[in-house]
Write a protein that binds this DNA or RNA. Sequence first.
DNA 1: TCGTAATCGAGACGGTACGTCGTGTCTTGCC
DNA 2: GGCAAGACACGACGTACCGTCTCGATTACGA
Lengths: 202, 202, 202, 202
Amino acid sequence: MPDTSHADRRRSSIGARRNPDAEAAILTAARALLAERGYAGFSIEEVARRAGAGKPTIYRWWATKADLLIDVYAAEKASHMALPDTGALWSDLLAYTRALWGFWRDTPSGSIFRALIAEAQTTEAALSALRDKFLPDRLRDLRHMFERAADRSEIRASEIDDLLGLYIGFNWLHLLTDRLADDAPAIERTARLIAGQPPGGS
Amino acid sequence: MPDTSHADRRRSSIGARRNPDAEAAILTAARALLAERGYAGFSIEEVARRAGAGKPTIYRWWATKADLLIDVYAAEKASHMALPDTGALWSDLLAYTRALWGFWRDTPSGSIFRALIAEAQTTEAALSALRDKFLPDRLRDLRHMFERAADRSEIRASEIDDLLGLYIGFNWLHLLTDRLADDAPAIERTARLIAGQPPGGS
Amino acid sequence: MPDTSHADRRRSSIGARRNPDAEAAILTAARALLAERGYAGFSIEEVARRAGAGKPTIYRWWATKADLLIDVYAAEKASHMALPDTGALWSDLLAYTRALWGFWRDTPSGSIFRALIAEAQTTEAALSALRDKFLPDRLRDLRHMFERAADRSEIRASEIDDLLGLYIGFNWLHLLTDRLADDAPAIERTARLIAGQPPGGS
Amino acid sequence: MPDTSHADRRRSSIGARRNPDAEAAILTAARALLAERGYAGFSIEEVARRAGAGKPTIYRWWATKADLLIDVYAAEKASHMALPDTGALWSDLLAYTRALWGFWRDTPSGSIFRALIAEAQTTEAALSALRDKFLPDRLRDLRHMFERAADRSEIRASEIDDLLGLYIGFNWLHLLTDRLADDAPAIERTARLIAGQPPGGS
DNA sequence: TCGTAATCGAGACGGTACGTCGTGTCTTGCC
DNA sequence: GGCAAGACACGACGTACCGTCTCGATTACGA
């Protein structure tokens, strides 16, 4: 058995209900696998092997690969990302985007999210999971940042959704083309653009 | 023989050199396959089947799936998109974006491009093709539109690249989440946002 | 890797036609597996593992487990069993049955045939393979023995098929209840019964 | 709930002892399942589903699948078959065999018995149950028929066991190859053969 | 002029992963 | 302690593609 990173073996059922140990082992294994081999090497089969879990256990709780990816990403994100409140949209965006890109670069999360988007191009179920479940969650979080800016009259309230779209598209574009490291200076310039702040100002 | 979409049968070798008929048949089959079944149903196996080609013939000329996708998309794109010149950036963007989304919706190109982006999350070669060849080409084309706007003082010249990034990200986001049809009203609002045009004005 | 009995690895395709090496490796592996673990331990998966073959290669050439079992049995039988011709039906039967039971006991063939019959109780395809392909072959061979006896007027020609049925049922019954070793004396008595020979006579 | 063949729901424990309702529901479900889908579709899982029983309840009372099959067959057989006494062995056999084949064809018993024999080729426990318990029972019943024939000097007393073997093998052969319906004419011819009666006579 | 070489369609090969099913064990919470 | 329920690890099922290989045929080109 080549891999030793999986949980302690012979974890058994704890009755007619979900075993949190199994769930944790699967999420951990999925995270590690994506970290090591990326989406290309990500398979339910291998996750099951590493987690010491049966494939049916995975399919029982996550109907699609996307559902699993979403849970892995969510567990990751919860513990890392917080919304800044600096008093100005452009500096909020600066702080948040730098944190986000760092999070994507320095944890498996970047790989996970790229996997999720790729999966959504393959499977209809994954697409609707991404669009109808994942994205709205993300938007809800970020909208607060923009709503505060609208309260401060930095942006028009009617523009919030479209600015959010531009902002998310900007991040996706850099993630999907793997330019998170190279193009970091773009963050500040783009934050100002979105916030309607003149370049170089404070 | 149930499928009739492939080229006429028994196309054979034409000697010790590449057979253009075979190449055309393969590109056509790939295009049709992506149109019908999307990236999920796109396999070298099925392309070969439809093209009436041997798999080695495909692998001989296209080392990776991404290479094939690029050629298919290139053949598609060349013949369709022209840059508008309406005299104002926001209406240029409006016209171009509506044309692009229509092109993505109504031809296989949308599926093809989605496939290419997805493949780039799996295969390093696809990623660098997308980032280093594809994206610069696209930027070069569009930059003219933004440069004209800068000449007219609608936008700052220093903002061109960042606005392009926002604009492309906006398009990708809608393509990848399959919202080209539903979210068409966003085009006008976003075109104004990018062009710095107040909402509702002419 | 626990099993070492499989053929030398990395046997590849020899073109667009059946590879006899692969076929031989698969039949050998199937035979060995049945010899070691019986029908209970017999799986296509394990045969593929031992043969160093891909599962699709097996499914390509043997549509059902029964087809594979039949080929394994046939290869075995061809090299071991010959029809005797002693000049009298009862001694022909005596010789043949003793050889058959020995063949069933001392080679994997007994296990193979038991597996085949069991499989026929599970799968409709296996049943028809057994009944319409295997059994007629077996009957054709044996019928010669009975026809010679009819020519010698030992039995009526009209009884041949029914005597064959009785004879085969007798053998099956002992095979399926694993009484080939214990009940060997029954062979002689039953040979006489079938041949219409009084007990104890020469 | 689509299937209605199982017992009334929410049958619960009746305390620290075996619940006869549960046992009956399980046997009934097993019988029905074998009737509908044969050995191929017979699984503990499905029996439990239909019976509205937990799997452990089944495993608690029947250690192996064979044990369950035996109980199902026993419950079935008891109520149906009677030994004929026509005054001649060949007509006894004729009557009994016709009844037996009809019983096997028209009730789940044929499927059950086929399942039992198949299971005996996989599981040692099933084999010994079949050989050491089942078969002797059957032989004991039938032997009376042959003993009466010996008393009437139709057959030799010393031949009884071997004729029984031939007779049972004949029946098994037709059951296992699913020729109970097609080959009914063989019954009369074989009955005469076993009874030493010339063909066509009365 | 003719052998050589690279092309073609075809399809078998060893593999990996898919998603489903059944196995026998285990635990819960009710009776 | 029996019961229904159902989760668990495991492993086989049969299928789809992967990328590689070898065939036999079909030309073009260089010696």
